[in-house]
């Protein structure tokens, strides 16, 4: 991406560097949301259905972690993945993999906390029915998650919004390497520091447009599913 062109020109001319950046942004954020969903949804559902001492505390901490500053998450993963850190031998620092890990750390609390709330509300409605059907604990989790699936789409979107918007974590663990770990948000940060504010704003608009499209697609899928399943 050369600074001589406006963001609109880059989009219209199909600038390959721009598309690589967009592709990486989506790949990293969607992968992180997927990983966070695989951890956060079962975790949230289990938390909704189980009662143990300290449960309230866990819920409060989880809710608080929804506001975890990205740069703190980034720094934690950085120290973990640094060659001098405990997982340094993996050689993951300054790679897209590290960015996925950092964003997973950011998104998991959001998905887990919102899933807990969603599933717990549904559980109040389903509790007697599932007990009467003799459904065991694992079956309950599976049933509630499946029946809450349309609400969980919104939960995943909240997670995706967080991942797609943040720059603090991925710039620390990814290094904003051109053509390798540069995403929409880190590119915007870079163009801002180069003083190319119009290009930075333009890229910002492209990012917003992409996020809007993804939300629209997910929303459409949700509505279609609800219409079909009730």
């Amino acid at each position: 991406m050369t600074g001589e062109m406006s963001a609109l020109q880059l989009v219209l001319t199909g600038d390959p560097a721009l598309y690589a950046v967009v592709r990486l942004s989506l790949l990293v954020s969607l992968s992180a949301v997927l990983c966070a969903a695989l951890i956060g949804i079962p975790l949230g559902a289990l938390l909704a259905l189980t009662r143990f001492p300290g449960r309230e505390g866990v819920i409060v901490v989880l809710n608080a972690l929804m506001g975890l500053p990205p740069v703190v998450a980034g720094l934690a993963i950085y120290l973990l993945l640094s060659r001098s850190g405990p997982l340094g031998t993996l050689g993951l620092l300054f790679t897209p993999g590290a960015m996925v890990i950092a964003q997973t750390l950011l998104v998991t609390p959001i998905i887990a906390a919102l899933t807990r709330q969603t599933v717990e509300d549904l559980w109040l409605e389903y509790r007697d029915e599932l007990a009467a059907l003799g459904v065991g604990p694992l079956g309950r989790v599976a049933t509630l998650v499946w029946d809450a699936r349309f609400s969980l789409v919104t939960v995943l979107l909240a997670g995706f919004g967080r991942a797609a918007a943040e720059v603090g974590a991925i710039i620390v663990v990814g290094g904003n390497i051109e053509g390798f770990t540069r995403t929409m948000t880190t590119a915007i940060a870079l163009e801002t520091s180069k003083g190319d504010l119009p290009l930075a704003i333009g890229l910002g608009l492209v990012l917003i447009a992409i996020v809007v499209v993804i939300n629209a697609l997910a929303w459409g899928a949700r509505r279609a599913g609800e219409r079909y399943v009730g």
């Binding site: 992968s31 997927l34 790679t95 599913g225």
Partner: peptide, 23 residues
């Protein structure tokens, strides 16, 4: 939305983001 095939595809996508980096 959530069937197994899309899940596996998405997982593979996630791994693809990680693997070439180390290779």
């Amino acid at each position: 939305m959530f069937n197994r095939r899309t899940l596996i595809a998405a997982l593979a996508l996630g791994l693809a983001a990680v693997v070439p980096a180390t290779a």
